[in-house]
Nucleic acid binder design. Structure first.
Lengths: 209, 209
DNA sequence: ACATGTGAAGCGCTTCACAGCG
DNA sequence: CGCTGTGAAGCGCTTCACATGT
C-alpha cells in the first residue's frame, strides 16, 4: 500500500489535513463525501488518495477523524520537527519570518540571512539577521534541512548553491527564476508573477471567446 | 492551432517568457533545446507547448526571440493592463503591495483593503488602505479584475464572496484554506504551509527509504 | 442500508522518433 | 545538415461503477 504515493496526492494531503482540523471538535467520523466537499475535489479522489496511505476507513461509517489526521501527519512527516532557514530578508522574507501559522508548528525558523551588511544584526521577530558567511556553519549546527529563497532573481541560483553545499535538502524558491540543485536536493518553486500571468491568460481568453 | 492550450502549458508559458527576457540582448534566435535547459524541462515539451500558440519556429534555426516573446505575451494576455486589488494588509499583503517586480508591468495595484479600522487610511507604497465598505465601489470604478486574498483563513471565504459580488473575475488566494466562488470567477491557490508540508513528505520519505 | 476500497476504463500530458523543411 | 512540428505510443492520474464489508 505504501510503496508509491502519486505526486498529486502528496499535494492534496495537506489540504485534507487542514480540512480535518477545521471540523467541529465533536465530530468523530467523516465520509469521503464530506471531506471532498471541504477540500474542493470529488469523493473518488479522496478515497483513492487515502487508500495510498492504508485502509483507514470503515464501510458504512467513514473515517475516524482523529486516526486519519494522525495517519496523514505521519505520512507527511509532520511528526518530526524541521528546521528552516530563510535567505533574503526583504519584504517577502520578513513576511515569511513573521508568518505565525507556520505549518501548524513542526517548522521552526532557525536562521535568517541576508547579503546586505546594513541588515545584518537587526532582528526580525526576535531572530537576528546573519551574514551569508555564517550560513554553512549555522545550517550545520542547527541541523536545518529546509531553505526558503527570497532573494532577488539574480542571486537565487548562487543562494541555492550555497544552501546545497551547506547540506540543505529541500528548497522553496520564491525568486522569479528557475534554479537547479544537485541530485538529492528537492526544489519547489512558488512564483507570484507566474500565477498572475496564468490568471491573465484565463481572463484574456474569456474576454475573447 | 489555438483552440485549447493545456493547463500545464499555460503554467509553463510565463517561465519561457522569463527565460527569453533573460537572454543576452544580442541573441536573435533560440532553439527549443536552449530554452528547455533554461526553463528546466525537456525540448520536446518546449516544442509541443509552443506549437499550441502557432508555428513560430524556423527549422534548422530555432525561434526568433523577439517574435516568440511577443507571441507568448499575446497568448497570456499581457498586452492588456490588469488592475489588481489586495484584501488583507498584514505582512504578506504589505509585501505583495510593495512587490516591485510585479509581473513585468501590466499588473497595476489599484486598491488595498483591510477590515481593521486602525489600518484604514495608512499608506503602503503610496496607496492608502481602504475600508472593506469601499471595496465594491472601488473595484467597479477602477475596473479591477484580479483580487489577491491575503486575509486570515477565517475571513477568506467571505472576502472571496465580496470580491465576486463586486465583479472581480480572478482570485489568487494566499489564505491557508480552500475557498469557492461562483462560475465565471477563476481561483488559484498559493499556499505556503502546503508547500512546506510537501517538502516534509519528501524529506521524510528519503530519510526512511 | 450505507460508505469504503479498487479494478478497469477514460483522459490528458509527456516523451519518442522521425518526417518535413529551411 | 539541423531543428522544428507532430503523429503515435506511453504513462500517470481521474473517474466510474460495483463488489465488499459492517
Amino acid at each position: 500500500m505504501n510503496a508509491t504515493v502519486p505526486k498529486v496526492t502528496v499535494q492534496r494531503l495537506p489540504v485534507y489535513l487542514r480540512c480535518l482540523e477545521g471540523l467541529s471538535p465533536g465530530q468523530e467520523h467523516v465520509s469521503s463525501d464530506q471531506l471532498a466537499q471541504l477540500a474542493g475535489v470529488n469523493s473518488a479522489k479522496v478515497r483513492k488518495d487515502l487508500s495510498y496511505l492504508g485502509s483507514f476507513g470503515v464501510r458504512g461509517v467513514g473515517y475516524d477523524v482523529e486516526h486519519l489526521r494522525f495517519q496523514i501527519r505521519i505520512a507527511l512527516g509532520l511528526e518530526e520537527d524541521w528546521s528552516v532557514v530563510i535567505v533574503g530578508i526583504g519584504n517577502l522574507g520578513r513576511a515569511l519570518a513573521n508568518y505565525a501559522g507556520f505549518g501548524d508548528r513542526g517548522f521552526n525558523i532557525v536562521g535568517l540571512f541576508d547579503a546586505d551588511p546594513a541588515k545584518v544584526g537587526t532582528k526580525v521577530d526576535g531572530l537576528a539577521i546573519e551574514s551569508l558567511k555564517n550560513l554553512e556553519r549555522s545550517v550545520r549546527s542547527k541541523k536545518a534541512s529546509i531553505g526558503l529563497v527570497t532573494t532577488p532573481a539574480a542571486a537565487a541560483q548562487e543562494t541555492a548553491d550555497v544552501l546545497a553545499a551547506a547540506g540543505i535538502r529541500s528548497i522553496l524558491n520564491f525568486a522569479p527564476t528557475v534554479i537547479t540543485a544537485p541530485d538529492g536536493v528537492y526544489i519547489r518553486r512558488v512564483d507570484l508573477s507566474t500565477e498572475l500571468q496564468v490568471l491573465s491568460f484565463y481572463l484574456h481568453r474569456r474576454r475573447s471567446d
